[in-house]
Design a protein around this nucleic acid. Structure first.
Length: 510
DNA sequence: CTGGGGAAGGGGCCC
DNA sequence: AGGGCCCCTTCCCCA
């Protein structure tokens, strides 16, 4: 990240640098918007460091005698209660709040552990709690008006708030497509409803007027059941939108771990309770899949969740002692250190070359052998690396083919082209590569299958037309992780086989 | 557009 | 169960 910033500074102005889009407004002379997406993470990280050392802390929260130094501005940013307490709510002038006079806030209504967890969340965007403490945290999040935490806790507990009165959810922006792809599970909402009162229903909660401030907040110890009203995360956070089709069919009541997973064929029942999963042909994983409370992604492998969480927090606790570059993972730092030590543990058996990574050696070996196992099914250019084939297919005329391919059930080719039945292709047929990829994804080995060559394809224009047509994101996604081994045998599969494979592939996709 | 290097993230295996 | 280590895939960047 730092590297990115340095490069940007050293080479600006540019419109894109390392994926960073540099916005330039042509209408405004010299006005350039240079985004620094890492800034928020770094800012939070530094604030957390300040909190831990007590630096610049202007607010102390206490719970049953335990003191938590913190920053007023951070608490106001994360908690609706403190925002109102300090008069920092939008549209307020801030002059009527408790303001600078409040340096210690007693929150005995929130357990120390829950308060610590909420503070940790405030400064790291990660909620780390034990299942047994979930309810206390939920209570604390409700009391303090930390909407997203309350939502997550309720979901995990199998409870739900009142969606109809939840402006946060309504305002949730959709995550990027890539994020959506990666976040394969949505927050599950159980039919059980938690008491989730409107402001009018909570007279004991005088600091939370729904419209305008009615005066000073009551002492913290008077906090009543908090009212849904915190919309402060709606723009900073991108939780997963509710997609009913992705909602797990069932949700286990085992707390934060062991939530139902969409990967039913592999890990269903591998919950925290250690339920037996029957019927899986694969070796059962011993590790418990865990669900990320932020993106809801199922993380396989014991101890892998903290590692995953750092992708959200941006925390990079592993720093190179030589150059200061930080990493989210220890193993990445270890590999990085090889650059300083000169260690290249992967020697080529055929030449003096040595490599940092095993996959570098693997790539290198393909140069010796001249092996280019990844061939474009359309233009037949071969590549030594799969990602290069993917890039190739996305980057040139193959992309045009892809993006004009018709989807299943979209009717005949507007150009009147025949459906290439001589190839066993249907008008909605997947491309050879896509079919191969789906087959491979379904466990059908494509290794060794002869690649589709011009000689094997007597009427390439038919295939061309057969695969021409509009294509949607679903198909793009299906082709996203490509398998390079396009095969003539694939094109000659029967429709019934194709149906079975596509259905199976669809299940695999899910 | 391609080849190569490298980062990032996930999963499996093992201790 | 947690963490280390390794492998793999995907993506990005640069020449």
């Amino acid at each position: 990240m730092t590297q990115t910033a340095v490069q940007l500074l050293s080479t600006a102005p540019c419109f894109t640098m390392k994926g960073r889009a540099v916005a330039m407004s042509p209408g405004e002379d010299g006005l350039i918007g240079i985004p620094f997406p890492e800034h928020s993470n770094e800012l939070l990280s530094r604030l957390n460091a300040q909190r831990r050392t007590g630096l610049l802390c202007d607010l102390t929260l206490t719970s049953h005698g335990t003191r938590y130094p913190t920053h007023r501005s951070v608490m106001a940013a994360v908690s609706l209660y403190f925002r109102r307490l300090f008069g920092a709510e939008e549209g307020e002038d801030g002059g009527e709040g408790v303001g600078d006079s409040c340096s210690v806030c007693q929150l005995d209504c929130v357990s120390p552990d829950a308060l610590a967890a909420l503070l940790e969340f405030a400064y790291t965007a990660t909620l780390t709690i034990r299942s047994s403490g979930m309810r206390e945290v939920l209570k604390g999040a409700q009391l303090l008006g930390i909407q997203c935490v309350a939502d997550a806790c309720r979901d995990i507990l199998g409870e739900t708030g009142d969606d109809q009165t939840d402006p946060v959810k309504e305002a949730e922006p959709l995550p990027s497509r890539r994020k959506q792809d990666r976040c394969s599970v949505t927050r599950a909402v159980s039919p059980v409803r938690l008491v989730w009162r409107s402001p009018e229903d909570t007279p004991e909660c005088g600091m939370l007027p729904a419209q305008g401030r009615e005066g000073h907040p009551p002492p913290a110890s008077h906090l009543g059941r908090f009212v849904n009203g915190g919309s402060h995360w709606s723009q900073e956070f991108t939780p997963i939108p509710h997609r009913p089709e992705d909602t797990p069919s069932e949700e286990e009541e085992s707390g934060a771990q062991g939530l139902a997973t969409p990967h039913l064929s592999q890990s269903q029942g591998d919950g925290a309770g250690g339920g037996a999963a029957a019927g899986s042909g694969r070796k059962r994983k011993s590790q418990t899949p865990q669900q990320c409370p932020v993106c809801q992604k199922i993380i396989h492998g014991a101890g892998k969740l903290p590692r995953h969480m750092r992708t959200h927090t941006g925390e990079k606790p592993f720093q190179c002692s030589a150059c200061g570059v930080r990493f989210t993972r220890n193993d990445k730092l270890k590999i990085h250190m090889r650059k300083h030590t000169g260690e290249r543990p992967y020697p080529c058996p055929s030449c003096p070359a040595r490599f940092l990574h095993s996959y570098d050696l693997k790539n290198h070996l393909s140069l010796h052998s001249g092996d280019r196992p990844f061939e474009c099914p359309l233009c037949h250019k071969a590549f030594a690396r799969e990602d290069h084939l993917q890039r190739h297919r996305k980057g040139h005329s193959c992309l045009e083919l892809r993006t004009h391919r018709r989807r299943r059930g979209m009717g005949p080719d507007p150009n009147g082209s025949p459906p290439s039945e001589s190839f066993g292709l249907r008008p909605d047929h997947l491309s050879v590569a896509a079919a191969a990829q789906l087959l491979e994804g379904h466990g059908v080995p494509m290794q060794g299958v002869p690649l589709l060559t011009g000689a094997r394809m007597p009427f390439p224009e038919l295939l061309w037309r057969a695969v021409a047509g509009p294509v949607g994101q679903a198909l793009d996604k299906a082709e996203g992780g490509s398998s390079p081994h396009g095969s003539a045998s694939v094109t000659h599969r029967t429709w019934e086989e194709e149906d079975e494979e596509q259905e199976a592939a669809g299940e695999e996709e899910e």
